[in-house]
Nucleic acid binder design. Structure first.
Lengths: 227, 227
DNA sequence: TTGTCGGCCGATCGCCGACAA
DNA sequence: TTGTCGGCGATCGGCCGACAA
């Protein structure tokens, strides 16, 4: 999964520590947020926090829900007594690789009208003008076909039209099918992103269904929630 | 799963040996008909047939396809040299418990018109008159609602009407939904059965898609095919 | 600028009798 | 007796501009 699309779907609040930086692992926080029981083996006592080195990161998306999540491999460090000393990036608060080049992306939370069965999608002007392919306004009406790739690489086709009084951008044909296939409801968000190679990508960010997330959470862990 | 409904779905060709009878287990035949590899462990050489005692039978139905199949537990017998001697029922060819009380059931292979999307189901007269609940012919038109339980215990509702010139029995409302949910196509069969307690049951028997069945075969074995 | 609504048109669903095999 | 067909009315999907927030 492309890291740029991953970050766009995850949202601006999400920061992933770069590889080889040091982070604290909060075992209890992890256990409390996990849906499945976390197996700490036979450790007699788990320290509240554990200094680790990030040794690997995988950007993934759930095959069912499209929700993005990350698997972060941590290697415990021995010298967790002198952790406030020196060295490089704690907690990834300094500039990380994700900030170095931010591609054009746009997220919108679906309104009732957007999610209504049989309805279309109101495209905010900013999104249509900066993310979508350039529309030929000289035609009457201005209309084009849009192709967007989701997190699995699947291509979705939409009819993009600029019409109505006052004029506005809309997705019509193809949108309803997308909503049904992805099981989107009002409150969920959709993300459009123009990749570096010019390809248009589409991702989704589902609304939080309640504290702790629902059983639909990918791989049994809350995706990047807090700790 | 009720044994009567199971036998009705399996069809008249199917005979299950009663418990505690002796049968031959054809290892090679089993292996050839299985979809998954059959693991015979480290046996250096498998005899062509193995005298066994039936120690357990489970009547089951695949949760996806509704197709019925049986799990038969076999215990190998030592004295497989003198198998043509005496004792009780070989191969269940004698009367078994399934023949002692045959409930009223009827099977019909779906025609193109039956399976057509949006169409109804032509109920053969015999089925309507002997299996279905008694219809009040004095009404105009004669119509009733039929409830039928499938192999999972789920209830399906159909509108049963007697109309047309010449008059015939039809299932209309509810039938299309049943066809779609069960993914029935022309050539598949439907089974109606009136249980001892008076309940109406419905089962399906899918058409053979080719020699050896398809990958949809339940639990990796062909259901009761030959050996 | 954009969320919601009612209008409306075409496609599909599904019930019907006619007719023939 | 029952399989197939065309008809046709009801429903639904989905595109549209009006209007107001």
């Amino acid at each position: 999964l492309d890291a740029q699309l991953w970050y766009a779907c995850a949202g601006g609040m999400v920061q992933i520590p770069p590889i080889n930086t040091k982070v604290f692992y909060f075992a209890q926080g992890h256990a409390e947020h996990a849906h499945d029981k976390v197996d700490f083996g036979n450790f007699p006592r788990i320290p509240p926090l554990l200094l680790c080195r990030v040794s690997g990161i995988k950007f993934l998306a759930d095959s069912e829900s499209d929700e993005v999540y990350a698997k972060i491999r941590l290697v415990p460090l021995r010298n967790d007594c002198d952790f406030d000393c020196d060295e490089d990036g704690f907690l990834g608060m300094e500039k990380t690789d994700q900030s170095q080049e931010k591609p054009a992306s746009f997220a919108k939370t679906l309104t009732q009208s957007d999610a209504n069965n049989g309805g279309g999608f109101s495209v905010p002007r900013y999104c249509a003008e900066t993310i979508f392919p350039r529309l030929d306004y000289s035609a009457e009406p201005p209309v084009q076909t849009i192709l967007a790739k989701d997190v699995h690489g699947e291509i979705w086709k939409f009819r993009h039209i600029y019409r109505g009084t006052p004029r506005r951008h809309l997705l019509t044909t193809g949108w309803s099918n997308f909503v049904n296939q992805k099981k989107l409801v009002a409150g969920d968000s959709i993300v459009f992103l123009r990749a570096d190679n010019g390809d248009l990508c589409v991702g989704i960010r589902r609304a939080k269904r309640g504290i702790g997330g629902g059983p639909e959470s990918p791989s049994g862990w809350n995706a990047l929630g807090g700790n």
